[in-house]
Design a protein around this nucleic acid. Structure first.
Length: 425
DNA sequence: TCTGGGGTCCTAGGACCC
DNA sequence: TCTGGGGTCCTAGGACCC
């Protein structure tokens, strides 16, 4: 029988911020989304104050000030580095690991129970991560991923568990499923929850007792799998190797609204440069690019405009210069004067790994693929930009970037920049 | 005034083929 | 008057996840 563990970091972004600020150890703390827009992470103390996930900052500003809550912009350089440390620690402890998100990993524990008590193993994982990295985690253990998720949720919700729940015993599964509301089940979102509740399905246990075939007919094959997984039948396996990406999206809201085409051209060029660098990092080339722009979705008084345009390249590329040219043309196509734009982005898709592209039948040394030394140049750019020597960029990306996102409360990159190492006095 | 960003998978429906 | 049936591929949109 299969056994999985789900290890999930507690309040991950908030915990990362506290790691280098012992003075904030017991202080309520929140982390903001990009552009300092909404609350995306809360420390335990902040949760206790009733600060909700996802609320816009401006709605709770007074409340935060009143309770002296520490507020941070999101610092992905820091979180990414701490995440790597957690994952390395987990990889050393378990037979196999699937990194599921920045703060979560599934472990394959099949067979581990032959030599060790699973709850004990869970505490070993928890204590090792705490000791090596300083981040608290919860551990849920069960025969399927969906049950492991639920076990993990229980580990966090019930202090008596001390952060580890072993759900391999059938009787414990039943007990927990009956306690868990439907919305806590992995794969049941808001829409499904409403539909299922209309059928009288209220708890995880109710869902587990549905007929899988009927669920497939009325809903989808995805929900059928969920039902089976809740019953201990493993349908989702551990994916140790991340499948190659199928698309790359780069988009941002602006710190201040954009009204001029020239500013928008800069912003889009920056997204393209980031996207192309990601593409090269994945060792892929893309044949499809699209550009989108839109005004704020939240202001009903302002005129609303949203549009996108895309282009199929004659042959796959990861050359920033080509993508910049195409993106700029697409942007001009959809640009309309007279709006306050809130957001723009680009999407790259239709990927071809190196060496897989189809040669052109009527090869013409046109503007597209006649770039000598393209690979060498891109490699050089990436190398420079990854080094700490300095950044180079294309003129179209602009210098001032007045529209740049707000990050007014950014913490230092303690672990990824020599100049920002924390001092111990 | 002020509301994130980046992904995946599945399905339905249309276009097209023979 | 009465106009098939079966298949593939692609895309857009919806749902979900963190």
């Amino acid at each position: 029988m299969t056994t999985f563990a789900l290890v999930d970091c507690n309040n991950f972004y908030a915990s990362c911020e506290k790691l280098f600020r012992p003075d904030l150890r017991h202080v309520p703390l929140v982390v903001l989304s990009n552009n300092d827009g909404c609350i995306v992470a809360r420390s335990k103390e902040a949760k206790a104050l009733g600060i909700k996930m996802g609320v816009p900052l401006h709605q709770v500003k007074d409340q935060l000030a009143y309770h002296n809550v520490a507020v941070f912009s999101s610092n992905y350089a820091l979180y990414g580095d701490i995440s790597n440390r957690v994952m390395e620690t987990l990889a050393a402890l378990a037979p196999a690991i699937e990194i599921y998100s920045i703060d979560e990993a599934f472990l394959d524990l099949t067979g581990v129970s032959n030599c060790m008590n699973l709850t004990e193993f869970g505490f070993q994982v928890k204590n090792t991560v705490q000791k090596n990295v300083g981040i608290g985690v919860g551990v849920g253990i069960a025969p399927t991923k969906t049950l492991a998720k639920l076990a993990n949720h229980a580990a966090k919700q019930y202090p008596a568990t001390q952060g580890v729940v072993d759900l391999t015993a059938k009787a414990r599964q039943e007990k927990l499923l009956k306690l868990m509301p439907l919305k806590e089940v992995w794969g049941v979102g808001r829409k499904l929850c409403t539909r299922l509740q209309a059928q009288g399905i209220e708890t995880a246990w109710d869902l587990a007792n549905q007929n899988p075939k009927t669920i497939r007919q009325k809903y989808s094959v995805v929900l059928e799998r969920t039902v089976r997984e809740l019953n201990g039948e493993s349908c989702l396996s551990l994916e140790e190797i991340a499948p190659p990406k199928q698309q790359i999206v780069c988009s941002r809201s602006f710190g201040t609204r954009i009204t001029q085409l020239s500013d928008m051209q800069e912003a889009v060029a920056n997204h393209v440069a980031r996207g192309a660098a990601k593409l090269r990092h994945e060792q892929q080339r893309c044949k499809h690019i699209s550009v989108f722009i839109h005004t704020s979705a939240y202001n009903p008084k302002e005129p609303h405009y949203s549009n996108h345009a895309s282009f199929q390249l004659p042959s796959p590329t990861n050359d920033t210069r080509i993508l910049l040219t195409v993106a700029n043309r697409l942007l001009k196509h959809i640009w309309q004067d007279g709006f306050n734009y809130a957001r723009a982005g680009i999407m790259l898709s239709d990927f071809y790994p190196k060496g897989m592209e189809q040669a052109l039948l009527f090869e013409s040394p046109s503007t597209f693929e006649s770039r000598p030394k393209s690979a060498e140049l891109m490699q050089l750019i990436d190398k420079l930009n990854q080094s700490k020597i300095g950044q180079i960029f294309f003129a179209r990306q602009g210098i001032e970037n007045n529209w740049k996102m707000k990050r007014q409360r950014l913490s230092p990159s303690y672990t990824t920049d020599w100049k920002q190492l924390p001092w111990v006095r």
